[in-house]
């Protein structure tokens, strides 16, 4: 499996409107050959519905506001409820280091703070293509 078989849903589960990072990362994924569904601003339930309908492999979340803990946990719960508990979840935005461990426990595979080079994010996903569920 290579990048062109991998589908990624990119979304902002909160209401806050900063989409600059989401666009930058989405473009980088697309340029790297991934199939990107740009969801934009979507509530957790919508994210899960879309993830299921489109049968995505990865969900990339972007949250620039301090409510990332509840939003991430709600999104992951919704994904499970829609039978998509196996997708890889990435989280980008302003995330405090103290919360990394708990987010990882929740099921977030990669956390990317502002200033992370885009190629690092792409590489992170490329390195984990073999772990994605379609392969397993």
């Amino acid at each position: 499996m290579d990048s062109k078989n991998v589908k990624i849903l990119m979304a902002k589960p909160g209401l806050e409107g900063h989409w600059r990072g989401l666009i930058a990362v989405s473009s980088a994924f697309r340029d790297a050959g991934f199939e990107v569904i740009y969801g934009g601003s979507m509530r957790p339930a919508e994210i899960a519905t879309t993830a299921a309908q489109e049968d995505v492999d990865i969900v990339g979340l972007s949250i620039l506001c301090s409510n990332y803990m509840p939003l991430t946990s709600q999104t992951i719960e919704q994904l499970k409820a829609h039978g998509k508990g196996d997708v890889m979840v990435l989280l980008g935005g302003i995330i405090y280091p103290d919360d990394f461990t708990e987010l990882q426990k929740m099921g977030v595979s990669g956390i990317f703070i502002p200033g992370t080079p885009l190629e690092d994010i792409v590489k992170f996903v490329n390195d984990r293509i073999p772990e994605l569920k379609k392969v397993a």
């Binding site: 909160g14 409107g17 509530r43 409510n67 709600q74």
Partner: peptide, 22 residues
């Protein structure tokens, strides 16, 4: 806050996590 800017009441199920943020 974001729910104010989005024109949603705080008990709107879509905004609960955003109330009082930013």
């Amino acid at each position: 806050d974001i729910s104010t800017a989005s024109g949603m009441d705080p008990d709107d199920p879509r905004v609960v996590s955003d109330v009082g943020h930013a």
